[in-house]
Amino acid sequence: MSSFEVPSQITIHHEPAPNTKRIWRAFWILSVVTLGELALGLSIYNIHKGPNPSEMMVLFFKGVICILTLAKGYYIAWVFMHMGDESKLFRRSIVVPLLLFIWFIIAFLHDGNAYREARDSNAGEFKVIKNDVPAAVLERGQKD
């Protein structure tokens, strides 16, 4: 039951990767992903500039950007912060609390959205001037 034959030297330090190849690879991945995000961000800009912005398309692009950002986060944490080298339980003890963000985000965003609807939906019963967004939201570009 209780045996404590522990090897006399337990290493506290993890052995890093033998060379820096992994780090540079992560750097290039991050750079490429950032460029990809940038491209998507600019295409959102161009969709907006167009005569008939497709909201679905914008939403799709934004979703892709979010996923790419999570991937970036993964590389930074796993490679740069050496999380990939930590023990599995330690990793979990860090990642599991972060899962709270799922419900945190859902609840907050849902409620924010619900309040906008509450502000706007009572039209007919009463109106508030400031919510009447001018119809002429033609172009969002503007001269300095």
Binding site: F104, L109, R119
Partner: peptide, 27 residues
């Protein structure tokens, strides 16, 4: 600390979704 930042960013998201209009950052 990520909860501190998370709270800020989520507040921002909540406010943004609660607004009728939000400027395009590209602009």
């Amino acid at each position: 600390d990520s909860f501190t930042f998370g709270a800020f960013l989520i507040s921002y998201g909540s406010t943004r979704l609660g607004s009728d209009y939000w400027p395009d950052p590209n602009h």
